[in-house]
Design a binder for these strands. Sequence first.
DNA 1: AGGGGAATGTTCGGATTCGGTAAAGAGCCG
DNA 2: CGGCTCTTTACCGAATCCGAACATTCCCCT
Lengths: 218, 218
Amino acid sequence: MVEDEPAIADLVRLYLTRDGFGVHLERDGAAGLAAARRLRPVACVLDIALPGLAGTEVCRRLREAGDWTPVIFLTARDDEVDRVVGLELGADDYVTKPFSPRELVARVRAVLRRTAGAPATTERPRVVGPVTLDPARRTVTAAGAPVQLTSTEFDLLAHLMARPGRVFTREELLAGVWGYAAHAGTRTVDVHVAQVRAKLGPASVIRTHRGVGYAADA
Amino acid sequence: MVEDEPAIADLVRLYLTRDGFGVHLERDGAAGLAAARRLRPVACVLDIALPGLAGTEVCRRLREAGDWTPVIFLTARDDEVDRVVGLELGADDYVTKPFSPRELVARVRAVLRRTAGAPATTERPRVVGPVTLDPARRTVTAAGAPVQLTSTEFDLLAHLMARPGRVFTREELLAGVWGYAAHAGTRTVDVHVAQVRAKLGPASVIRTHRGVGYAADA
DNA sequence: AGGGGAATGTTCGGATTCGGTAAAGAGCCG
DNA sequence: CGGCTCTTTACCGAATCCGAACATTCCCCT
């Protein structure tokens, strides 16, 4: 959350925390942008009016960098222009001040449910370290450079990056990527992992868990 | 849209139509539910207070049937309970009366942008590289020269260009272009893609994603 | 610390699948 | 009937997948 008024910040933090969310607070736009990139939160709550970088600008820069973390705006100005601009920017929702904390929590949950829901997550670009993966466009970039992956390679990487840190066994990957009717041997997974690693270069996001399987970095 | 007050219904229909949306109106919940299932609209605007079946109930039944068509609620009661219930139900957004028609349109557009795989929604001409496509006039030009496409060919290109970069599987294209009851084989898509490419000439905007489907250049 | 064994990385060519293309049949409408 | 479009099919070249064999790394046991 990025909010410069302590009273509001405390209130929101209280309610979000009570609802089970971990909350990180920054007080100006630049710090918020840096924190969002560093901490990779599940969602951002941004005040539009912020000292320095405006909330809309923070959102725009995140989106430009391929970061589609859900963003919810707080705004005091209840006029349409802000609403339209906010949503057209790629934000996911907004709440106008004065707002009830309970409503904000409900909206955060609603946004998370939307983005965690089956098709939404698979359609949303994922970022792990220097690697970004866009399921809709089926494109991958490593350290900013586009990477050309074959269909199987892409699906494999997408599967791993869907849950960063989670370790998948070769059998799970065969079932999830190749499909249940797959007749390929488990060593085939190794070969494709190697191929993806080679194409990603030094930004190899895939970690081997000896005796278990593979995982994308968290 | 399902709305029982004619004044509001007319207003909303006017603004949505002016923005390029086709609008179908029903006046009670049961009819709305049936229409949604029959017409498969890109989005539903539902009043919460409806004679017979309430809007929330319509939404719930749609969701239970696995229908995740975007739903936007209209509600007169601006209290939290409705908000929470509405969003937790699986709705995508809501607007409280009195609302401005422009805000409603903006929210509809925002919701459609969020939902993946949404078919063509904007009536404005689309430009991708040297190719321009005008949905209203159903005309296409490549490098300035007009191109004569058949109906199916146009719909196919329009569907791809509606979301440049987004990769569509052959099944998605069959569903979106040919219709939900299409019985054509997937290779039919290939043939039409080839036709469009031939007519567009060297400005072939359609890219093949081997093992997956097709996409328009971003 | 060293050796054995297992798991993983790497390489490479045949086999398979996939998509482009052409052509022909089917349906539609004037 | 004649032209147009859509659909299906067959064939071919090319991308890519699979698996085996070999090389390497890591773990565990003595």
